[in-house]
């Protein structure tokens, strides 16, 4: 990986973040009738509060440069304003509380889905037409076509409401007191099982379908013939020659897919009432809590851009040819 590649990717990430910040400004500030819009949706927000807001963001001043400068300054210092809904609380704190539950859900979901999806896809693509390929391919396509909440709802019906194995919602038992940290962790894990299964299943389909075609593409490469000519076992050819090469396009695809994962996680959280960014988004949507929505938009976009940057670096690390 050359320095130039690194710089190029960094530059792209920075540019994208600038676009996101500008877009955010345009969406939430420059749209016509912002203060009036706020007032119309929030009878509870007093005229005084709106005036205060207007003064704070310089809404009486021209959009560019004054408002933009004020906005960028605030954003850079992590000031996203105050939530309407959770009166008076800074947006950063409202979001901060919800950040980790979502990260755990998405992070673990990605981890499991990558392991299962890549393994299943690689095997199916390698043994094209085998039972694993046919059955796995069918299941993958169905999972791929299921919105996360469509996966989650039956899980609740069967395993929570029906069999009673897992709680139907939340992250901890309501009002529970714990004897030890371990107890608390176990309760958390118990609540996590179904949402995590939902996110994992939601991702596995896409990953295995994509990995299958990536493997099939490498299968016809000359170096695979070379590896077979070397008398390596079929499994070894797959593991040490086909897989590492098929992994390369997957890194990029998984990174680009992160946006969809975030989307899926939002709906999965709603189904299980998981106290993360997803449920917060829906609450904020209903309450038209624009500062919070704006903060969420920034946070999720940043995270995805950052993850893409990481993916680019991983790619540069995995593919010795990268020097662009």
């Amino acid at each position: 990986m050359s320095g130039r590649y690194l710089l190029q990717k960094l530059a792209r990430a920075v540019l994208t973040i600038i676009v996101i910040v500008l877009l955010n400004f345009l969406l939430f500030r420059a749209m016509p009738g912002s203060p009036a819009r706020i007032a119309s949706h929030h009878p509870g927000v007093t005229q005084a509060a709106i005036d205060q807001l207007a003064a704070r963001w310089g809404l009486d001043k021209p959009l560019i440069p004054d408002q933009l400068v004020a906005y960028v300054n605030a954003t850079l210092t992590g000031d996203f304003g105050l939530s309407y809904q959770f009166r008076g609380e800074p947006v950063t704190e409202v979001i901060g509380d919800r950040f980790w539950p979502t990260m755990i859900l998405i992070g673990l979901g990605e981890l499991f889905a990558i392991i299962i999806g890549l393994a299943l896809g690689a095997y199916a693509g390698w043994r094209r037409g085998s039972a694993v390929d046919r059955v796995g391919g069918g299941i993958s396509l169905v999972l791929y076509s299921m919105p996360y909440f469509v996966i989650g709802m039956p899980l609740i019906i069967v395993f929570a409401a029906g069999l009673g194995w897992f709680p139907t919602s939340g992250m901890f038992d309501a009002g529970a007191t714990y004897a030890s940290g371990l107890d608390q962790l176990l309760d958390f894990a118990h609540h996590l099982v179904l949402p995590l299964t939902t996110v994992t299943l939601g991702l596995v389909g896409a990953y295995s379908i994509l990995m299958r075609s990536a493997i099939m593409e490498t299968r016809s490469e000359d170096y695979i013939t070379t590896a077979r000519a070397k008398g390596l076992t079929d499994g070894r050819v797959l593991r040490t020659h086909a897989f590492p090469n098929a992994l390369l396009p997957m890194v990029t695809i998984i990174a680009i897919d992160l946006g969809y994962v975030v989307a899926g996680a939002i709906t999965a959280e709603v189904v299980f009432n998981w106290p993360g960014i997803g449920t917060l988004t829906v609450d904020a949507l209903q309450a038209r809590d624009y500062p919070v929505l704006q903060g969420i938009f920034l946070l999720l976009s940043f995270t995805v851009v950052l993850a893409n940057l990481v993916a680019d670096l991983v790619y540069g690390f995995l593919d010795p040819r990268v020097r662009v």
């Binding site: 792209r12 540019l15 994208t16 676009v19 996101i20 877009l23 955010n24 969406l27 939430f28 749209m31 016509p32 009738g33 819009r37 119309s40 949706h41 680009i256 992160l258 946006g259 969809y260 975030v262 989307a263 939002i266 988004t281 949507l285 038209r288 929505l293 704006q294 969420i296 938009f297 999720l300 976009s301 995805v304 851009v305 893409n308």
Partner: peptide, 26 residues
């Protein structure tokens, strides 16, 4: 293509969530 790249990276669902209520209000 740069614009396309940005839109590829931007989580479109999140963008949709941000865009929809504003358009609706307008």
């Amino acid at each position: 293509m740069w614009l396309t790249d940005v839109f590829l990276v931007l989580p479109n669902f999140v963008l949709a969530i941000a865009l929809a209520p504003i358009l609706l209000d307008i």
